[in-house]
Computed example of a mutant assay.
Amino acid sequence: MELSILATGIVRILGITALVILSYSMVIRNFPNGWKKSAAIGILFATGAILSMNDAVMPAPGVFFDGRTALLAIVYPYGGLIGTVIAALLIAAYRIWLGGVGVVPGLLSILMLCCVSYAAARVPVRKIPVGFGRSTLIGLAASLSIISVVLLPGEVVATIVGAPLIAVILANIANVVIIVNFLEREKSRLRIIRALEHEASVDPLTKLQNRRAFDKAALRAMNDNRAKAAHCSLIMIDIDHFKTINDRLGHYTGDTVLADVAAIIQKNVRLGDVVVRYGGEEILLLLANTKQDAANALAERVRSEIENTDFVSGSESVNVTVSAGVASLGEKYASMEALLKAADKALYHAKLSGRNRVEVA
């Protein structure tokens, strides 16, 4: 086999893995963490491997060198167990379909690569940091799968050993290094983007979401209501006499009280509920799939807990109460704008009625 043909094939393999890298960035942006993301990564890596197998280097009839080695060697750290199993099964099925004398060695190689991938994920980053050294070691370990060629007929092995075999091993190592480098860069870039998005949507004092985040959540809630007829409720909460707290005890104490009130509210809601610092000392709760009675009970529970909490700032102990207005989507209020106005109006009535109470729109 001419080395020029092998070199050309290796370049094609690297081109296909570049497409996998580009597609990976789309997967991690559009799939939340969980089994769906793992499955998508497994399918992606399998697709890249299968495309590479269709354009493989063939040193002998039925024997293939392609990009599956590098992709399988790193699938576990990125796709987890689910992604690894999916990738391995799809690649194995396609290798069986291709046939040839290399089927059994190919399947053994797939199994060995999955083991290498799992082992690589178990090595702590503190011992071998992510980078060129770690990638090179993974590539070297992945190249051990080449020993499966011993299962081939002797005359086939004779056409592989020597310079072609060394070149393929080096190409596999280089492929792993290149892929891992770009995948890690993409993960790092996504972490930065998500951190910036988090900062842009979170109030720094209360750690609650801000109005920008509420607008997105409200749009999702309205779409869910139209599609699933799910219930949705709003609770608007305002700290009573908050200006007096600021004027009498200072803004530092006021900020502390506001943050503590926010923490109490956050503690009482579900994971999927949206709690927003809506403005000043106003806090807005968007409760998806929550009926009016449940929203009323939550507002009353929060009001009572805040009333019975001693807020301490330095040497000062502060008694705090809140008023709340509750409104729910339904025949009376069919839009988020109407719901906001209704909750705000109910809060206004709670203030007029003596404060430290919950009013329902």
Rank of each mutant, 00 (worst) to 15 (best):
L298T: 11
V275G: 08
G250V: 00
I306L: 07
K291C: 07
A297C: 03
I235F: 02
A294Y: 00
A217Y: 07
D247W: 15
D238S: 12
G272W: 02
D215R: 09
S233I: 05
I283W: 09
G272M: 13
V302A: 01
A227Y: 13
V275F: 04
D238H: 08
T244D: 10
F214Q: 01
A217L: 09
I306S: 03
A213Y: 08
T244E: 06
I283E: 14
N223F: 05
K291A: 12
L234C: 04
L298H: 09
L287Q: 04
E305A: 05
K228W: 10
N289L: 00
L285D: 07
M222W: 13
A221M: 13
R211W: 05
R277I: 02
Q266K: 14
D273E: 12
R301N: 12
R226Q: 13
D273I: 12
L287C: 06
A295K: 09
M222P: 00
G250R: 05
K243D: 03
I237K: 03
E282F: 11
D293T: 11
L234G: 08
I283T: 11
Q266V: 00
L286T: 05
R303G: 12
R220I: 06
C232I: 09
R248D: 05
A297P: 02
T256Q: 14
A263Y: 11
T244C: 04
V302F: 04
D224A: 15
D247M: 13
E300Y: 08
R277M: 03
V276C: 08
H251F: 08
E281G: 06
N289E: 12
I306F: 02
R248A: 07
N223T: 14
D260Q: 15
S233R: 11
I245N: 07
L249N: 08
N225R: 15
I245H: 12
L284E: 07
L258H: 07
H231P: 00
M236S: 10
L249I: 01
K291F: 00
V274W: 00
L287S: 06
I265H: 01
L286D: 03
M222L: 15
V257C: 13
R277L: 00
I237R: 01
T256M: 10
A221Y: 02
A218Q: 03
N289P: 02
A218I: 01
E305G: 00
L298V: 08
N223A: 14
L298I: 10
E281C: 09
H241F: 15
R303L: 07
